[in-house]
Design a protein around this nucleic acid. Structure first.
Lengths: 220, 220
DNA sequence: TGTACATCAGTGAACGCGCGTTCACTGATGTAC
DNA sequence: TGTACATCAGTGAACGCGCGTTCACTGATGTAC
């Protein structure tokens, strides 16, 4: 509630011990630091508990007060991160105000924008080997939301009726690929990809079959 | 030439010193081992020089006889690996025997098949953070081959004329995404994706605009 | 109102490990004379 | 044909490091009586 009496997990600063009953605050700080470091490292294996503790201004052992081990910490961070992404996407969806195509477009573009804002987190969430080692079933909300959005376009006659799950998978795969290619490109090569937005628009038109939008955004 | 007097880099076996003038053989063995380990680990940062040396049956320091450091080793392995992939794709292309659509389809499917045969290597090649840190410009051959294949379809009137580079990028992005989603799926979740081949066929039809193929392969 | 005690939130030292890398070296093998 | 020597292919010990994790502990704070 009051946000000023505790330093947020600023880089390396030592923090004061939480008051009784406020032990969970350290958990929050640790998660926040973990997300920041994961975004920088873009690799869960490169994240060390000791670095997290250092950045949180806390002894290395204190991490164990809230997380059983390295994987538990990373998974908790990923879960939170995925929650944020899902929330952003759903909010964009709602913001489209009933137009099913605008809604699908908004979902897709917000996801792309999020990926560029948090490239390291996007990679950890979608490409980290922890996905194979651990159960990350929380990642499936997005699939369902996306299928539903495609289905609404079809139901409204704004896209040809088809297997919505398959079409949504095609769209997701294509957009993920477009994002992934851009995020994984060498910083050294001068090679530039065309803007993601154009490519997404082509995917919406060709894969889902919605009408091509005008030059600007389609809402109003 | 004679392939029987030297043990190939079998797991952990100690090897006998190469004869004078044959020093480059160790380089080959080290590369082979590196590729195997990278495929298992699916992460270049998780690969250790010492593990490579151990598997090659050689002292850790011997790796430095042929590679300047860790990154140099990984990059050399990636380059070889990319060469193999390119070769396989180009061979499939040639095998299509002049039919531009069959050729594009073959290229695409071979790439997908390769990814499933070497999931770890595919991930290292396309998703490793070494791509951002180092110059991996060798990775661009595939882009050009793929654009050319799309262009040939258009020239033959088998696909609507369009910006071949953009269409090829769309196809590559979509296929990469489809592959990536499957490779990164949790082993625990029972969730199954539909076969890649079906999805690739939809991408060829919808993104490139080729005619839908019959049930079997399109060649004869 | 005072005090003993339980609990909470965290600490500091230590463990054993594998890592990348450097260094001076070894011993077999080919070659010049 | 013999022998000194250069070169090649590779080794072994050692460096300092940061890591994950365990353990016994500390000291402030709230609470029961």
């Amino acid at each position: 509630m009051a946000a000023m009496n505790t330093t947020p997990p600023a880089s390396g600063a030592q923090r004061s011990r939480n008051r009784r009953g406020q032990g969970e605050r350290l958990r929050e700080d640790i998660l926040t630091v973990t997300l920041r470091l994961l975004d920088e490292l873009a690799d869960d294996q490169a994240l060390s508990l000791r670095a997290v503790a250092r950045e949180a201004g806390v002894a290395a052992t204190s991490v164990y007060l809230h997380f059983a081990d390295h994987d538990a910490l990373v998974l908790a961070a990923m879960e939170r991160c995925h929650g944020d992404l899902t929330e952003a996407v759903d909010k964009a969806d709602t913001g489209a105000d009933g137009d099913p195509v605008a809604s699908l477009r908004a979902r897709t573009l917000v996801m792309g924008a999020w990926a560029f804002q948090h490239p390291g987190l996007y990679k950890v969430l979608h490409e980290s080997t922890i996905n194979q080692r651990a159960n990350t079933s929380f990642r499936y909300d997005l699939t369902e939301g996306s299928t539903a959005a495609v289905q609404r376009c079809m139901d409204a006659g704004l896209a040809p009726a088809d297997d919505a799950a398959a079409v949504a998978l095609d769209l997701r795969a294509a957009v993920h690929g477009a994002v992934s290619i851009r995020l994984n490109q060498s910083k050294e090569s001068g090679r530039q990809w065309p803007p993601l937005e154009e490519q997404v628009e082509r995917f919406l038109v060709k894969l889902v079959g919605v009408a091509r939008s005008g030059a600007g955004a389609s809402r109003r």
